[in-house]
Nucleic acid binder design. Structure first.
Length: 440
RNA sequence: GGAGAGAUGGCCGAGCGGUCGAAGGCGGCGCCCUGCUAAGGCGUUAUACGGGCUUAAACCCGUAUCGAGGGUUCGAAUCCCUCUCUCUCCGCCA
């Protein structure tokens, strides 16, 4: 099996040739995105690498010729001392240049891995979330018969959410679900997985929740965002921040068969995030936790079909909310608000009555070839005919959905004046027929 | 955790210091033969990067790649070191 520890070698996000040929165009496009890339240094390094590579290849050619000469002379029982001395010198020159080259490639690779993806042409330009464009809304705003309570008020009153004990056993930003709350979370997971596998054509995956450094690098979490991740102290394992990481890496360093595309996976996993830098934000409730559950959708698609696939995948995530009867809207993220690896992203935002706000419950992105290049995921047609190129696939993923936030939306949108919560129809058989959650 | 074995092309498998990008087989592709099929014959069959070239293909030249990274040597698939992974046995464990 191939090992992608070779990341610090030659597999690089931006193909250096493409980067060199389109340097100014890329620089300009990423500038609008707010990328902090040391462009001039990058350009210098690329040129240096090119020069040194040429030199070293020429010398190696010389060395090869010389060594063959030595072999020939020895076979003929002639003295090869002169050639050997000359080649020793060539060998040393090669080594010197190689050392230089190695240092340059190391910095170059590191810089390169920190360059974000190029936004797709259809992405609106903008600085932050305020510049995102609403694409559509679904369903009516819920008409509540009393002032909306927050989900933590509802949940604690019902005895199904316990933040005090979560703080005791773990700390801030953790939650304990009990009784009908725990069951509702489980029901949601099953409902989502069942819908995606039976109606939307995804294959279910249950991946590892810890992954290695290569996997994190492939999907773009590393090297730039290590501080967002939980990492084991004694071994180089990271807790996954999303199932995107293990599931996309399923096909790392593989060449897929063209006719098999698109390949679609869905996975339930817990997700772990340090949430460094979000102090003071969403400190109460289930919205922002160090550990939360998510059902993820991942797709590997042919480049000319990936935007179609993005629409489809987003629709699959929306279908969950529609099934649950929850009002939501879809927004197209602007250049400044997109994640590092994405070329285009739709956020699905569900309505939360207690905040009178839409809150993100899913994020669906097309990464185009960005992750595929880092991860070495290619495809070709299986005919065995000559002349076909193996190309990088496009990868996509989206939450389908964030389970905890879905539970929040249910508690808040289906709360009743008496403090109970009605369970949406589609979940009832997963809840053993329960129709509403009442105080026990 | 302890002891041992191993990693070579799409697959199987040889090679253990030069003539090796790598024998042989299988598979794939092309042509031939054959009424069809089967069998058979001949040939061909890795990838990446750089250059020849102003665009694309073809072709040619160069370099790299035998799990990964370093080292020894004029020369490494072959020798040495480190790491990763796989397998077997023992221990531990859900």
């Amino acid at each position: 099996m191939l090992d992608s520890s070779r990341f610090l070698g030659h597999v690089i996000m931006y193909d250096l040739r493409a980067l060199r040929d389109n340097f100014d165009a890329i620089r300009e496009q990423l500038g609008r995105r707010g990328a902090d890339v040391p462009w001039d240094r990058l350009r210098t390094l690329i040129e240096q690498r090119r020069t040194l590579t040429n030199q070293v290849e020429q010398l190696r050619h010389e060395l090869k010729k010389g060594s063959d000469e030595v072999a020939k002379l020895k076979r003929e029982n002639q003295s090869a001392d002169a050639s050997m001395t000359a080649m020793k010198d060539v060998g040393e020159r090669i080594k010197t240049i190689e050392d230089e080259l190695r240092a340059i490639e190391e910095t170059l690779t590191d810089l390169n891995l920190r360059i974000p993806n190029l936004p797709h042409a259809s992405v609106p330009a903008g600085k932050d979330a305020d510049d995102n464009k609403e694409a559509r809304r679904w369903g009516p705003l819920p008409a509540l018969r009393a002032p909306a309570k927050s989900h933590w008020e509802i949940g604690e009153a019902l005895g199904i959410l316990d933040f005090d004990r979560a703080a005791k056993i773990a700390g801030a930003r953790f939650a304990v679900l009990t009784g009908a709350g725990a069951r509702l979370e489980r029901a949601l997971i099953n409902y989502m997985l069942d819908l995606h596998t039976t109606q939307h054509g995804y294959r279910e995956v249950l991946p590892p929740f810890l992954v290695n450094r290569s996997s994190m690098t492939a999907t773009g979490q590393l090297p730039k965002f290590e501080e967002d991740l939980f990492r084991l102290r004694d071994e180089d394992y990271f807790l996954i921040p999303t199932a995107e990481v293990p599931v996309t890496n399923l096909h790392r360093d593989e060449t897929l068969t063209e006719s098999a595309l698109p390949i679609r996976y869905t996975a339930y996993t817990p997700c772990f995030r340090r949430e460094a830098g979000s102090y003071g934000k969403d400190t109460r409730g289930l919205i922002r936790l160090h550990q939360f559950n998510k059902v993820e959708l991942v797709s590997f698609a042919k480049p000319d079909q990936s935007y179609e696939e993005l629409e489809r995948l987003t629709g699959h995530a929306e279908a969950i909310l529609q099934g649950l009867g929850l009002h939501y809207r879809v927004v197209t993220l602007c250049t400044g608000d997109m994640g590092f690896s994405a070329a285009k992203t739709y956020d699905i935002e569900v309505w939360l009555p207690s905040q009178s706000h839409y809150r993100e419950i899913s994020s669906c992105s097309n990464f185009e070839g960005f992750q595929a290049r880092r991860a070495g995921i290619r495809y070709k047609d299986a005919s065995g005919k000559k002349g076909q190129r193996t190309e990088f696939v496009h990868t996509l993923n989206g939450s389908g959905l964030a389970v905890g936030r879905t539970l929040v939306a249910i508690l808040e949108n289906y709360q009743q004046p008496d403090g109970s919560v009605t369970i949406p129809d589609v979940l009832r058989h997963y809840m053993g027929g329960m129709e509403r959650i009442k105080k026990e």
